[in-house]
Design a protein around this nucleic acid. Structure first.
Lengths: 129, 129
DNA sequence: TTGCCTATACGAAAAACTTCGTACTAACTT
DNA sequence: AAGTTAGTACGAAGTTTTTCGTATAGGCAA
């Protein structure tokens, strides 16, 4: 029986998922090295977190090698959508337009990004027809 | 001395802010009634949270009435931008276009919303000139 | 004035999240 | 074979967040 509500990664877990999405399947060492570049963090902390994430089903673990290899179980896009959906509900009262507007105003968006977004809107409307 | 990093509302706090943004200044009872519609939650839990938020500076408290009246201290837009900025960094590697795209694909977006977004893009580009 | 209703205050338990130390083990090295 | 290195397992402390029970007190109605 599948879980009713998807497992939401916590902050630290999301950080780790970020590394896995970026690097692909990685060992604890890989992940630790990457994160330790930015902040102070013990090796076993990362290990423990990955073990927990494995239990929760956030990552898949390949134990065939001595150093286990972990991989994100769900693609970045899916998790991103989920987190956004959460935020949309919790902070934007469900209005996607409002969210998008805030997202765009919060930082200088390059012309390239703007046209990419336009293209996407076109595609969306096309689809609707 | 102002705080270096803005106070980020936690999950439950955000939920309360949502109510305050929607309803405007409210009593504990008001907030509790609204939240209890969706989930099981004690009255004193909301009270305590509001007291904490008051200490943190997330809400302003008017004690002139017997039932204190709480109001969000920062407008929705500002907090929304902050949370989005966080999410952008933490889950989207900083790409606003990607975030927007995911936001739009996560749910059916009405034609009205789409045109509102287009209008906003236009305004953005106009501004750039 | 007595009692009830509706508030706030506050401590503290409970739950969730983060962090790390220590123990143990397999695999190399010498 | 013994020592060293690089890994996992796991308990548990530390922290933050969430939740609520109990104590009090003001205001109002009988």
């Amino acid at each position: 029986m599948a879980r009713r509500t998807a497992v939401r990664p916590t902050g630290a877990e999301l950080e780790i998922l970020g590394v896995l999405w970026e690097r692909g399947p990685s060992t604890v060492r890989d992940v630790h090295e990457r994160l330790a570049r930015d902040r102070d963090l013990g090796y076993t902390t990362v290990l423990k977190l990955l073990q927990i994430m494995s239990e929760k089903g956030l990552v898949r673990r390949d134990e065939s090698q001595r150093a286990h290899v972990y991989a994100a179980r769900t693609p970045a896009e899916q998790t991103q959508r989920q987190l956004l959906g959460d935020l949309l509900e919790r902070a934007f009262g469900g209005s996607a337009a409002l969210l998008v507007q805030q997202a765009l105003s919060s930082r200088k968006t390059s012309p390239e990004e703007i046209s990419r977004i336009r293209a996407y809107l076109d595609a969306l409307e096309e689809e609707k027809k």
